[in-house]
Amino acid sequence: MSIDLKTIKHISKLSRISVDEKKAEKLAGDLNSIFEFIEKLNELKTDNVEPLTSVAETTLKLRSDKVESKNLREQVIKNSPKENEDYFVVPKVIE
């Protein structure tokens, strides 16, 4: 298989990373060599294997329903590249 420029454009769109023609070509080359190496997995038959998501052999711990976080507005928006007193501010979104 080979990853073409159209696919690169599609995944760059999904990843919200802009690519120009030159960058797309470089990425296509890199990804193709990486996937060539990844394809090695196809040698293995895995039909009856359970997928492993986490090696932690335990289950989710539950916390109690308590409000502990206080008003952190200042802390939370302090690092924001653009804000007013109350809100995070982003370029206008057109629905």
């Binding site: 916390r63 329903d65 308590k66 409000v67 502990e68 976080s69 008003n71 952190l72 507005r73 802390q75 939370v76 928006i77 109350d86 809100y87 995070f88």
Partner: peptide, 24 residues
């Protein structure tokens, strides 16, 4: 209906000032 959020300990109360019920 709960006091705090699904994965964080901030309040779920309706009608608060913007961004005052936001944890890290």
């Amino acid at each position: 209906s709960s006091q705090s959020k699904l994965f964080s300990t901030s309040s779920t109360k309706f009608g608060a000032e913007p961004n005052t019920q936001v944890s890290l």
